[in-house]
Nucleic acid binder design. Structure first.
Lengths: 170, 170
DNA sequence: CAGTAATTTCAGTAATTACTGATATCGTTG
DNA sequence: CAACGATATCAGTAATTACTGAAATTACTG
């Protein structure tokens, strides 16, 4: 009574679909649209070196529109790479070789944003001593985590260098 | 043409309101409703030792309903304390003495959830070697950050013990 | 223990946001 | 440079979510 029709479709293996879905729900909590999460998840989970938009619309049962927009979003966030090889019409997409690093960077930026806001609040004439104390504590906390997280990332990257096997075409 | 009427209201100082608003926008990014963010922000920024729901509905121009629900949310999240002193009808609310610690804990829980999902994905029969490698890397990353964040919190708490001045009533 | 003030619950609504599908644009190929 | 295939854009819609305000519940008071 809700779905119009179209249940006559080539789908990806149900097992995979399930995992894709759980990933996308996770990503949703980080604030991005479910369809974006699905695409990201699929690109993480697939063995195919590259995937086209047409394939994504097909596999994920999405419109060309949302695939295009979500791909672009993931691209600008640095989670997905677009590979437009000349001599080919369709662009190819694959997951960024190390999306975690990109995600880390965004987190660090988030902390900086937080610090900025706290700083502004502290300079507000209207706030009193109690609030000031709370804000100072919060600022100290975020500054601490800011450097700790950066250090932690560096350490982890040193211990876990990217295994490089830039795959061959098609 | 949108606002019905009711612009005849006692408001908190515009300077404060502005900061409250910027905080609430920040909190919105962490996924909770703007009104919840406003309440939390106000409780952080006020000098008053306790605030009642009635005062919040008034100051923040919100309905009794949303104040009640949001207060309850903030309470269960551990960001806000309800102080129901016998001999008083109205409950009093104040910000948790150290909400940052609560926030940290929630973050750590988030990391654990992420690890769980990755674990489940890894046991999926359908995924191949490339995906497995990516998932292992992701898992290693989150495990690393999980412990690093916990350590960082402990260190910070040691360096920044809570200054205790549990304030007097009213 | 009746009366009342405060809080919670809940149904309805307003506003936001993701998504679709049609159209426009861009880029490659013959 | 014409034709076509692929991607981007955009307006409309479906679905979700925050919020309101009234009614129900709970808890304190005389």
């Amino acid at each position: 009574m809700e779905e119009p029709v179209k249940n006559d479709v080539p789908l990806m293996s149900p097992g995979l679909a399930e995992t894709v879905e759980s990933f996308s729900l996770m990503f949703e909590q980080f604030g991005f649209p479910r369809m974006g999460g699905r695409i990201f998840a699929f690109l993480i989970l697939t063995e195919r070196p590259y995937v086209t938009q047409a394939e994504l619309t097909d596999l994920l049962q999405a419109s060309t529109g949302s695939v295009s927009t979500m791909i672009r979003l993931l691209e600008t966030l640095g989670f997905v790479e677009r590979v437009s090889l000349p001599g080919h019409r369709r662009d190819r997409f694959r997951v960024h070789p190390d999306p975690l690093v990109e995600m880390s960077k965004r987190r660090v930026e988030g902390a900086i944003h937080m610090i900025d806001i706290i700083e502004k609040a502290r300079h507000n004439k209207e706030i009193g001593p109690l609030a000031t104390e709370r804000l100072e504590r919060a600022e100290s906390y975020y500054r601490h985590f800011h450097v700790e997280m950066e250090l932690a990332l560096v350490r982890w990257l040193e211990a876990n260098p990217l295994p490089e096997h830039e795959v061959a075409d098609e």
